[in-house]
Design a binder for these strands. Structure first.
Lengths: 253, 253
DNA sequence: TCATTGGCGTTACGCTTCGTAACACAACAC
DNA sequence: GTGTTGTGTTACGAAGCGTAACGCCAATGA
């Protein structure tokens, strides 16, 4: 898992003592095992004893590394955020920058296929908080949401830069959403300018994408064939792109 | 809760013995209590002991009524389906039949506000299956999905009947989705005709609606104000209706 | 009227989990 | 070598699940 903590700025205090390395490795192994168990048994309800057993340890030993189940969960959630973020970013960057529709589709596909591959972890970060787990106040939950969305944002910013971004289908924006855009602008002064219409369109796209993904990942579209779901998804993403003002090639792929 | 079981055709075998009535009442009370606890503690992970304590009973007594936690969950899930279905249907019927946009918005609002009011039960039926709970094979899960969707379907059918349904924004429909439409037609021969474009548009609408609802219900839109969310939702639903070919009044409400 | 039957709820139990406490051992520092 | 720190163990108490064995009560039948 190579924990990769983007939160503490990777100060990389170079001299990592033997012990510290061992500790870090154990932490990674715990998280890896926990993640695997979670995916395997299809539940976010992980048991310390299971993890320990799987690792050839006893349960109380884990408390040396995580104070309780919630702390472990918090770590797993943070890692999952990062993983999804990285995955989506990689997908976006795997397509030439001028192929805006291609990038949009790539991001959508990455989001969707990750969720379908790992519905439990998808639910872990973007579904309901784990049973009995109280997310740290105003914690990583909304953070993750925004990070996922920022990948979409990036596409819109890029399209706008290139002058390839048309007006969205809906140009009416409610006053309160205009204010909201203003606040976002102040919160992220380094980001390119974003119009209220674009802000609204981005949110629309993201909610759309999430809807299909969530339904499919949790099996609520199983009554249509996988091929039909694929076709549906592509048309769905096309629709989202069109309504958001992104340039979309005419030929239905 | 007055259990209202639409599955067994309410044969209403009239002579309900005193005992049977008592038993039914207890079952209802258990389900009520379980539901309440679930909503209150924000978790689908309910404990028999808690339910029993709340009812002034002991845990083992509950096993007279439900063989195990899964059986109780199955019952709760079924009830929740029915409740949501009824709620949405009521919302739809609360608006004059010729006000198509009004009905669409009402359905969307009902779905959304129910989910936000009761995110746990929303997750219970439309999110990830409960930890440790294996849904009965091909069971109520997809049933619920289809039932929720049927409310949307009804609106489209009605609009089509009235000749008020325009073409959706996307009229390309992939071959495999056309076949899928055909199969649906055969599965529900009593339903009005539905074109592939319409079938696709309905699915699009539903996935959209679900996306916003799911994000909001689980707190992932908390970084914008409730008022902004309201405004966003209305514009979102408008967009969905427009792209689906439903008649939408020009004035942005 | 009185015994029987069946449903319901109880206490008692075994098993498993969580999380803490007390102890044992290895690595490291001086 | 000796003390300190980190890591893992076994031992324990509290709480949950689900089963088993028992007591109580209402309904039934002679």
């Amino acid at each position: 898992m190579t924990t990769h903590l983007p939160h503490q700025p990777a100060a990389d205090s170079p001299p990592l003592s033997r012990r510290e390395r061992a500790r870090a490795a154990t932490i990674d192994e715990i998280k890896e095992t926990a993640t695997r168990l979670m995916s395997e048994q299809g539940t976010t309800d992980l048991r310390f004893s299971d993890i320990a057993r799987e690792m050839g340890m006893t349960a109380p030993a884990l408390y040396r590394y995580f104070a309780d189940r919630d702390e472990l969960l918090t770590a797993l959630i943070a890692d999952t955020y990062d993983e999804l973020g990285a995955l989506v970013a990689a997908a976006r960057e795997g397509v030439p920058a001028d192929d805006i529709w291609g990038r949009f589709l790539a991001v959508a596909n990455a989001y969707r296929s990750w969720a379908s591959r790992d519905p439990v972890r998808f639910a872990l970060i973007l579904g309901m908080p784990v049973p009995g787990y109280a997310a740290p106040e105003d914690g990583p939950t909304t953070e993750a949401a925004k990070r996922a969305m920022s990948q979409l944002k990036a596409i819109f910013f890029h399209a706008a830069e290139q002058g390839a971004l048309g007006p969205p289908l809906l140009t009416d924006v409610h006053e309160v959403l205009r204010e909201c855009t203003e606040m976002e602008k102040q919160a992220h002064p380094h980001e390119p300018e974003q119009s209220p219409e674009m802000f609204q369109a981005i949110l629309h796209s993201w909610a759309s994408l999430h809807g299909f993904t969530s339904l499919e990942a949790h099996g609520h579209l199983n009554w249509i064939s996988p091929e039909a779901r694929d076709a549906l998804f592509v048309s769905y993403v096309r629709l989202a792109a069109i309504t958001a003002g992104l340039p979309v090639p005419d030929a239905p792929r």
